[in-house]
Amino acid sequence: MAKGVWIVAEVRDGAYRKVSYEIASAARKLADELGDEVCAVLCGSGIEGKAAELGKYGVDKVYVADNAALDPYTTDAHAAAVAKIVKEKDPAILLMAASVQGKDLSARLVGKLATGLATDCTGLKIEGGKLIAVRPMYAGKCFGEVAFEATPAMATLRPNVFPIVENAKAGAVEKYDPALDAGQLKTKVAEVAKDTSGKIELTEANIIVSGGRGMKGPENYNILEDLAKVLGAAVGASRAAVDAGWRPVTDQVGQTGKTVSPNLYIACGISGAIQHLAGMSSSKFIVAINKDPEAPIFQRADYGIVDDLFKVVPEVTAAAKKILA
């Protein structure tokens, strides 16, 4: 019988991505309820030394595939490596990050393992000894509770939603041979061009300052950037701002952009269209600055200021600077 709660840890450039600790913590919680073990799969090159660290977040055992073909990430190498150990050990539950990599990997694993996957989950629970994964659907207009008819029951977890909990366990390390067949690896990474502007990635930011059509033009985003600098925030945009060519497409938040879940989302000159809300409504706190009191964004905001953003935002920056100095 399938047993155990497993995760796939995500590393980039030799370091864990924060979401790996979030999924480890979430897995621990489920495993404690089930009276089971948490195991992690760690794939990469030269990463064996990092494996035991996962013990700190409740992982009992880490299976490590250390192989040059596993760095940088490619879909076929990682899917083959994870599928091999999962097929051998037969876990009941397998959790991954709803990151670019985690979504790509998990979907390919659905095919390899002939199982079910709930994408981008914001909640997990156990009912009758089985996983129920809670996820937003129809752009967050409703939520679905997904049940599974096959194992492992797979879910990807939205970054920044599940709390990181330190809960020291053994973190025992066991190496395994991913048995990669070079002839079957058909994709390769030709280049990774890092954004060197020092920009904080939207999906990883704790705070996002976002601007829409109300910003009036690309030249005005400096007031958002000033605020972002003081708060250590990333700067996002609505589709209206992206379509106008004011901001790059990678900055777009929403249904056809990025899904973000920061602790604080400050929407400036954004009306709050349903497609925009789809990408940010799981933020923990939402602030709206908009001159139209009827703007739908105010229905979602925890704090709202009805006023001209060009007057308010610089004052917020000044006040934040004072308090954070």
Partner: peptide, 24 residues
């Protein structure tokens, strides 16, 4: 392999606070 067993409306959100006053 997976099915949506139950569909529920989004959790209600407490109404937000609109900050009052004329001075930005």
């Amino acid at each position: 392999k997976a099915k949506v067993a139950k569909t529920v409306p989004p959790p209600a959100r407490a109404p937000g606070k609109i900050l009052q006053g004329d001075d930005p």
